[in-house]
Design a protein around this nucleic acid. Structure first.
Lengths: 343, 343
DNA sequence: CTGAAAGCGCTTACAG
DNA sequence: CTGAAAGCGCTTACAG
């Protein structure tokens, strides 16, 4: 007994193994009679195709690799990961494709991962949370492996990607502060070796410019993408300019740090200084006061990543697909929104 | 050309396919001569075994399924997930086992996931973040599939598991508050349909009892495992007892909510009320003041989950393995620790 | 539309 | 210790 095979399905249905296979794979050229009896047999026996056997002949795997390149310790962005994974999982589910998760924590493991991915174990690869100029996406792509990247890919990598509208979101955030009558608006920059960091800075400047406000580099201060980084940056900014009345921080975590700094300096938020973060992560609701922030849907990004990859795999083309997802400003207490738990 | 096969390796090495296979699989009964020439050929050709072909005959998959049963929306515990995944990934890496992630977001998807897992697509399953009395672990186990659960499994499921020492951690937290001279110690309970919630409550009581402090049920108040839940619970507790001088919250997120409530009520933390959370998540460092909390290593849990599962798979036994991981109290500002960023 | 047959790349008794 | 051979469960030209 054990697990039923196609052979048994065919026998029960009274047809050849080839016909049974055609029905199972939805081939159109199958007689209605044959189809029905095979379908009945499948149900009766509880038949499920053996992936390995199928894979051996089709040379497909019905699986995609998902690479999280984040080294340990950069937990700050963790809350995103699961959301993205959820989205990918959802996007893959309808196709019965499985999600093979690859996390490399050491250069050694990274090499192993790359070997694994290039040896035809997966039909395509989704990469996200890339640091700096990671050569992996271009590398995979040049080997003919369908690849799509979450976020803007490293320079020089001619691969498909799905990104959030960082510019639009940051622009809206700064414009919101301006609309509140703020005129000395500082910014806490994200890492300038990450595309998102660079883009959010550009949007900050563009928004000031659009409003006719003067640019002043001393109102910009970067730091690590951490709470402490945000706190220190805010300390410095306050020291430079005691008249700052608003801050746009490139991440919620940095904004939370800035909040501490402002608190320590005796500034009231939002009365003295208004502040807006970016991510709209769980942190935005944990701070006191609650944090205005730019919302981005990481689950949607995951779903789009899956869709893009599936399209590339199906099309077998080498076209570069780009998708930019809308972001949205959520106003909370820290920039004058109403108190308490609005979602 | 294309990908080299065992056949080619054998030809280059001048041996039979069977011998080549034995070398690749590390069989001991192979002559040194044969071994060396095969190894050379493997390197020369860059040979990597075809998983599908191997799987077809061995009836193993070299993959384990990881199920995250968490429905969308319960993001609060997200930061854990990636850490656990990282641990699992690390634990699996040495064995070249792949991690197939299964996230089901609807009952429909859950059925599909279960079908997938029971059809021999994976060699074993790791489950975590189970809610209530999920029948899945027992179900899989009864079908002979190696299973290990992260956290205490649902009642009635006789399966292996890895858990954090919830009792020890909570006991230490409450004892710490007592040591600080606090005598009216309230607790914000976690969901009582989750083992962790029940155990932490029991530990709270045990600690009070051990110190000779009276038990008082009106000092216990539960709520959802959210920030708002914590806030509301604290509101109620303060209303019941204006003389509360300490709080043990069953999660950091609830503690953050309690902090807001205390703030709104004009209580100073830790001067008037000391507070300790549980999880030592990123939230503990985002609050103002920083939050004392019980640390648990979710990455370690992941690693142990992988190890346990691998053992079960190898042993082919049905033994129930239990591992309890140490937790550790981290004292920060909210209970009298020194200010600012100690890790 | 349907079936007989070849073959995907590997492992593993079975002999020797 | 080594090799010839069978067989894992499936798909897919190829004929008809």
């Amino acid at each position: 007994m054990g697990v039923p095979t196609l052979e048994e399905v065919a026998r029960v249905a009274g047809v050849s193994r080839a016909s049974a296979s055609r029905v199972v794979n939805g081939s159109p050229s199958v007689g209605i009679q044959v189809r029905q009896s095979v379908e009945r047999a499948v149900v009766e026996l509880g038949y499920v195709p053996n992936r390995a056997a199928r894979s051996l002949v089709t040379r497909r795997n019905d699986s995609v690799g998902v690479v999280i390149a984040e080294p340990t310790g950069r937990i700050f962005s963790d809350p995103f990961f699961v959301e993205v994974l959820r989205g990918i999982s959802g996007g893959l589910a309808s196709r019965e494709m499985q999600l093979v998760l690859v996390m490399s924590q050491s250069p050694e493991e990274e090499r192993r991962a790359e070997r694994y991915l290039t040896r035809g174990h997966v039909d395509g690869v989704i990469l996200f949370s890339l640091h700096g100029d990671d050569p992996l996406p271009e590398h995979l792509h040049s080997q003919g492996i369908p690849v799509v990247v979450g976020g803007e890919p490293p320079r020089g990598a001619r691969v498909s990607y799905v990104d959030n509208d960082n510019h639009g979101g940051a622009f809206a955030a700064v414009t919101h502060l301006i609309d509140q009558g703020r005129i000395r608006i500082a910014t806490i920059l994200g890492p300038q070796d990450m595309p998102a960091g660079v883009t959010r800075r550009r949007a900050y400047r563009d928004a000031l410019r659009a409003a006719g406000l003067p640019l002043d580099e001393s109102l910009e201060k970067g730091g690590e993408f951490t709470r402490e980084g945000g706190q220190r940056a805010m300390d410095v900014l306050l020291q430079r300019h005691s008249d700052i009345d608003a801050v746009f921080a490139a991440s919620d975590l940095m904004a939370a740090g800035a909040l501490s700094s402002l608190h320590a300096a005796g500034r009231r938020v939002p009365e003295d200084v208004a502040i807006v973060g970016f991510d709209d992560s769980i942190i935005a609701l944990s701070t006191q006061p609650s944090l205005s922030s730019v919302h981005q849907s990481m689950e949607l990004m995951g779903r789009e990543l899956a869709n893009s990859l599936l399209q590339t795999i199906d099309a077998r083309d080498r076209a570069v697909r780009r998708v930019v997802l809308e972001t949205q400003l959520v106003v909370r207490e820290s920039s004058g929104g109403p108190p308490t738990g609005q979602n």
